[in-house]
Design a protein around this nucleic acid. Structure first.
Length: 214
DNA sequence: ATCCCGAGGG
DNA sequence: CCCTCTGGAT
């Protein structure tokens, strides 16, 4: 199977079985999504979703979060990974939104990555989810699943994987493909003992074909 | 012991 | 390139 065929197989499968795939992070506006994605590093979406409503009840927008003190915010996100860093990042991020972006979330990757706590992956999530820009956020799930299936070849970094994925997925499907791969990685193609026996991608998956030989 | 929608700094 | 941050779930 050529790589192009593999991509088409994946597109056909998910178009039929997961046409509605979207983020599981809860949010009502770009600001809330940005906060949620910053918190999501090395943490489950489920836990993020338990935390963000408490934050937004007290700090509903960039202006209020910019005025928050460390000691006000830290206890709320204490049970998330890296609470120290994330507390500083969230407040700094809100302060920069107010200072440089009129309190609004910019929708350009180059501007987003200037914000504290916002790297390439987060910037790609925001621009693709909010604005459907053809950017592929490569997180741990996308990286692992793409490598297993054979969508990416010899990708050693998330950036290399991203470049391959945006080259082969049609532009208009990139923001959707991101969620296909995330959700597949979360529920089927999990890191430890992937559930190949219930996976609909067997016939197009490099990893499954390789394990068959054993 | 390993993994969860990573980012920043050296 | 490496390292650190660092809590909860399985």
């Amino acid at each position: 199977m050529t790589r192009k065929d593999r991509y088409q197989f994946v597109i056909d499968y998910f178009s039929e079985h997961a046409p509605e795939a979207e983020t599981e992070l809860l949010y009502d506006n770009p600001f809330q999504l940005l906060v949620a994605v910053i918190l999501s590093a090395q943490c489950t979406d489920k836990r993020v979703n338990l935390t963000t409503p408490v934050i937004f009840a007290k700090f509903p927008d960039a202006e209020s979060l910019a005025k928050a003190t460390f000691d006000e915010l830290f206890p709320i996100i204490k049970s998330i990974s890296y609470p120290n860093n994330k507390t500083k990042h969230l407040i700094g991020m809100a302060q920069m939104l107010v200072a440089d972006f009129n309190g609004e979330v910019p929708l350009k990757v180059e501007e987003l990555i200037k914000l504290p706590g916002v790297g390439r992956k987060t910037a790609n999530v925001i621009t693709s989810v909010i604005d459907e820009q053809p950017n592929m956020a490569v997180d741990t799930h996308v990286f692992r699943v793409s490598a297993r299936i054979g969508l990416t070849l010899q990708a050693k970094t998330p950036l290399q994987a991203e470049q391959q994925l945006i080259k082969f997925f049609p532009k208009e499907l990139i923001h959707k493909a991101h969620h296909w791969l995330i959700l597949h990685g979360r529920y089927v193609c999990v890191a430890r003992s992937p559930k190949c026996e219930i996976c609909g991608l067997q016939q197009g998956c490099k990893y499954f074909q390789a394990t068959l030989k054993n």
